[in-house]
Design a protein around this nucleic acid. Structure first.
Length: 358
DNA sequence: TAGACGTGGAT
DNA sequence: TATCCAAGTCT
């Protein structure tokens, strides 16, 4: 009985704090308003926010909802336009699944999102977290929403010493116990706001935390030590080559990467495989190639990469092998290149300018 | 189930 | 500069 009331107190304290301090975000209904959140906007925001900060998402969310205001609009969109609009946000499988999901909703669900976790979970790109979040936030049904914020807050509230990821079942059970029957969506967003603003990974602001007196970790010497995490592996380095083929009339040769694998489905510069041992430089076509002095480097989640940039200028008769397109240099931003290739392009174009100066 | 899968900001 | 990390999902 005491435990149960303690769990209720956590939700009560947190919701009271949320009613005053909720962040105003473009995909949220205004605070205090009783208007229902649009499932399309909630879903879109949840996909964009996966492993991605609010600050990074905000401009993309604005552009997407402006250009495709409804799930039907998005379902009818051109693949290449959606992929280009996603460029720079990362984890491009999300964009491919976003389109597949919108089309599934349009085709199989009459343009209306399923309103249960099970129904949502069956959609492409919708996992346990997103299904629960949309259920709770957009449809105002009880669901246990567990993301990295909730994991951290819960691990601290109950001083869970089991390291992640083994602690997941324990954390989920605890999250279930403190999730209220009413306002589960607000509760989930309140937990995430708390994790993002006060109960942060480092230097948590325990002094002003509304759950301070409910928190077991606060009673320890180092609340930030929770959640305990397993050690990480070192990040390997890979090497490769990238080819800047510029036509004298101001176009560059772009290809589309295969749907599977790194940067799948995105426009790109032609490049070699990326491997631990530096591969030999075998250009895609015969031309007068010059290599830039410094490689373009980029750090991905599971490896870092250095690409040698090779530049060639060719005449209008040239046609590189394989699938690709000549893209006008003066609107290269519209090509939607992932950051790695955008940097390689910047380096190649800077070199070209330096050449002209010489 | 552990690894693949991007990016940029904070420290 | 190096490391961590953010509203995870898929295989």
């Amino acid at each position: 009985m005491r435990v149960e009331s303690s769990n209720r107190k956590i939700a009560k304290d947190l919701l009271a704090h949320y009613d005053v301090h909720a962040r105003r975000l473009p995909w949220r209904a205004p605070p205090g308003s009783n208007e229902a959140a649009d499932p399309y906007r909630v879903w879109l925001s949840e996909i964009m926010l996966q492993q991605t900060t609010v600050a990074a998402v905000a401009p993309y969310f604005a552009r997407f909802t402006d250009r495709w205001p409804t799930v039907a609009d998005l379902a009818a969109a051109d693949d290449a336009e959606v992929m280009a609009a996603w460029a720079g946000l990362g984890y491009y499988a999300r964009a491919r699944n976003l389109l597949a999901c919108a089309r599934a909703v349009a085709r199989d669900h009459g343009g209306t999102f399923p309103d249960t976790e099970q129904g949502l979970r069956a959609l492409p790109g919708v996992g346990a977290y997103t299904a629960a979040a949309v259920t709770a936030i957009a449809f105002r049904r009880r669901a246990v929403v567990v993301d990295a914020n909730v994991e951290r807050v819960v691990a601290r509230l109950f001083a869970i010493a089991t390291p992640l990821p083994a602690a997941r079942p324990e954390i989920r059970a605890a999250a279930d116990r403190i999730t209220p029957d009413a306002r589960a969506g607000d509760f989930a967003q309140a937990m995430m706001d708390l994790g993002a603003t006060l109960c942060t990974p480092r230097n948590p602001a325990c002094g002003i935390c509304p759950l301070r007196e409910d928190c077991a970790a606060f009673l320890t010497a180092d609340p930030a030590a929770f959640p305990v995490k397993a050690a990480k592996k070192a990040r390997p380095h890979r090497h490769g080559h990238v080819w800047w083929i510029e036509r004298t009339d101001g176009h560059v040769w772009l290809v589309r990467r295969p749907d599977k694998g790194m940067l799948g489905g995105m426009r790109a510069l032609p490049s070699s495989d990326w491997s631990a041992a530096a591969p030999a430089a075998t250009p895609p076509l015969a031309a007068c190639w010059s290599a830039l002095a410094d490689p373009v480097t980029h750090v991905f989640t599971h490896f870092s990469l250095g690409l040698m940039v090779h530049v060639a200028r060719v005449n209008g008769d040239c046609l590189p092998p394989g699938q690709g397109e000549w893209w006008p240099l003066d609107r290269l931003e519209d090509a939607g290149l992932p950051t790695l290739f955008r940097r390689a392009a910047d380096a190649a174009m800077k070199e070209t300018i330096d050449d002209v100066r010489r």
